[in-house]
Design a binder for these strands. Sequence first.
RNA 1: GGGCGCGUAGCUCAGCGGUAGAGCAUCGCCUUCACACGGCGGGGGUCACAGGUUCAAUCCCUGUCGCGCCCA
Length: 901
Amino acid sequence: MLDKNFDAAAAERRLYAVWEAEGRFAAAPDGGAIPYTIMIPPPNVTGTLHMGHALTMTLQDILVRWQRMQGRDALWQPGTDHAGIATQMVVERQLDGEGIRRSALGRDAFVERVWQWKAQSGGGITAQLRRLGASLDWSRERFTMDPGLSAAVREVFVRLHREGLIVRARRLVNWDPSFRSAISDLEVESREVRGHLWTIRYPVEGEVGRFLSVATTRPETMLGDTAVAVHPEDARYLDLVGRFVVLPLTGRRVPVVADAYSDPDKGTGAVKITPAHDFNDFAVGQRHGLAMPSVLDAEARIALDEIAGELRAVPGLADPAFVRGLSGQAREAARTAIVGELERLGLLEKVEPHVHQVPHAERGGAVVEPRLTVQWYCDAGRLAGPAIEAVESGRVEFVPRQWENTFFSWMREIQPWCISRQLWWGHRIPAWYGPDGHVFVAHDEAEAARLATSHYDAPVALTQDEDVLDTWFSSALWPFSTLGWPERTAELARYYPTDVLVTGFDIIFFWVARMMMMGLHLMEEVPFRQVFIHGLVRDERGQKMSKSKGNGIDPLELIDRYGADALRFTICALTGQGRDVKLGPKRVEEYRSFVTKLWNAARFCEMNEVRPVEGFQPEAAQGRLARWILDEAAGTAAEAGAALEAYRFDEYAASVYRFTWNRFCDWFLEFAKPVSNAGDTTEAAELRAATAHVLGTILRLLHPVMPFVTEALWAEFGFGPEGSLIVAAWPTAERLAGAPEVARELDWVTRFIGEIRAVRAEMNVPPSKVTPVLLRDAGPETVARAEAWAEAIGRMARVSAVSVLDGEVPAEVARGAAQAVVDEATLVLPLAGVIDLGAERTRLQKERARALEEAAKVERKLGNADFVARAKPEVVDENRERLSAFQQETARLDAALRRIG
RNA sequence: GGGCGCGUAGCUCAGCGGUAGAGCAUCGCCUUCACACGGCGGGGGUCACAGGUUCAAUCCCUGUCGCGCCCA
């Protein structure tokens, strides 16, 4: 016997353990089934489950469970990411708390410490995924720094290096001064900052009293200026091109160059050029062969090493002592000092408030400093071509399609990818340097040593590159590294390419595009056929959830309060295409009602001895009620399947919800009540069997989204042992013969009952008052139906008897009657003394006015010769029928009004 | 500045050439033997605005306004 309430917490613990123990999540590579594969977007190994995870993992689990039920060999590949910067930061903060500096600890000890932290907290996120009900094949769990995956990383690095697709180069790079590491352009976001625009006078060499004014938002970088650029067609400065100005503070002579980069309409039209600290200036510097001295160190403090030798004293312009005093100062402090000095020298023309875009590190938020360093770069430009082609040709399909534009626009202008990071936690770059700095890229030190020995003709001491790879480098290999690549494993052959990748649009560039580039280059095949891009989770007011705003919701808390099924269903129901998901506890509470409704409907079935009947054939059912609900269930299965096929999670949820609540519970179970109580008649037995069949269908249709409550009910009803629904067959969608005719009949009954209910409610007839119904003008079909469904009509519409009137309604009845029109028939409810006749008249008049208005609308349309001539014939016919129906309804309401006088 | 998306009932959203829908909220009635996390019924929308295409526009096209996101 089912408990009064569903104990979600107990069922979740018990059932997940059963599934896992019985290996229900495990892929079956040796079976004959067609594989269905999804790669989990690996969460940070030391992370905790947030709503974003809950969203994406729920959708993936729905797909995987659905396909598994369709007999596919489902592999949902689990695993976690080492998350270089994030994890290193966490451990550094822990060390800070203990008063230990990373540098004091040393590299090996530090990395060891991170491994300890991983061992200690690494199971957290996977345990939380289990709470959500995720049916991942845990036996195949991988970690990006596993030996196998690390070997894949080294193999790719070596291979791409040998192919010239990975190179080491000294370029300007985005530098995060707080992490003291390079970051990729994707990890930089520009933020609007209210700053100042300073206009500084640079004296023109050899022309006393003449100045060239330049405007800048970053005066401190002037220590590294090596030119001033003006537009080649700017008449104001033409005579200065090729001449020199003297840089204040350092006294350096710098040329005036003509370059189209300078915008004559912006500022003074002349710009200072600091090639080592600005990307645009770097390009100008390259075009004009300028020197590129750096004046900021790894922590963005003033560093004079590269300019110390050239400092000159120029009276009234440059004082080496002042500049030397800046050494080691933070860029902000140096800015203040430099502006003060320029003002003192009378070289500051003006200061204006200025709003401008400043690059910030996405993680950590430090102001990014472009810096000239040696880094490893991956030639993304060459790898992008095949990935672009794969999407163009449809071999990879984005859903919704609009994201393909986003993908194309980035891929077509992709920049070299800086893959080295000055961190300790991650895949160390497999490059070793000889005594003269010659680089040997190899799978391991022994191979590097062999290469070096042959290069130098003698064994030499090698030192390994200190840097690690960008975390996304290993993520990019995930679809094949998890399957054993570079070994040619059976899994790799079977499960690659995967079927679909499910993720948010925020990592299309970081991850999706890179997996495609690497997959196509190394596997020569796309990593997935489809990419389903879902929205982001937002709070109830539509704001992005974030730690800093404190508006985050903990999915585990929601699971504790409402159950995993309720949370999952909420997510599913709210996941439309191309829209973010606004989610709060209230929404989950709303959908928990559905879990409860299902539970109670099942309890009701159980009380009425509904049990699955072996070999039950829907098509063989005789009763009209049974055939109706069986066909509706099949229709719902068709809808649900089509919705999932199209990644319409909202439609899938809505379709099964509607059927379960509004068809099965509200109508079918109500109709079935007397029959189910009727003992052992053939009719009752068949209806019970049909009910069981439909309940089973509902459980199977809902299992992907609500795995726990459905599995619990499945076992309780004896559809199969506990833990077997997960592999039960997805319902077939075969409609029943003659179903449309039965559907019309049931539609009539529900409308008939509905009309009576509405009239009674509107006329304030107390529920205790049972009335007869007299049928006027009813055709033979209506009469037959009214007889056939008399019991249900009586019970559900509080009607004592339905009788057919031969002639007109007796006057004494008519004067107190409430009336309603259903198709050709008029329903007369004798309620003299119970209802207010004036109110009934008003109600009928309102109905009549509505029918008349509709009729007029259709009439206008049909009166339009163009419409009749040009619209599709079936549309014209449809409108003729509607007109006739509204006209008849009006006439019947007129008659009803006459009747009550 | 370039691109994308969105403005439909009080709220959240679906619909996307021919009858405007759902859930929640709201109002009325109902403690009817599965469920008050319930049942029954009602009210509520010039589908942002302005043009255009069409026999017909919430839906297609153009523009305007408002909001959001991405890229520069």
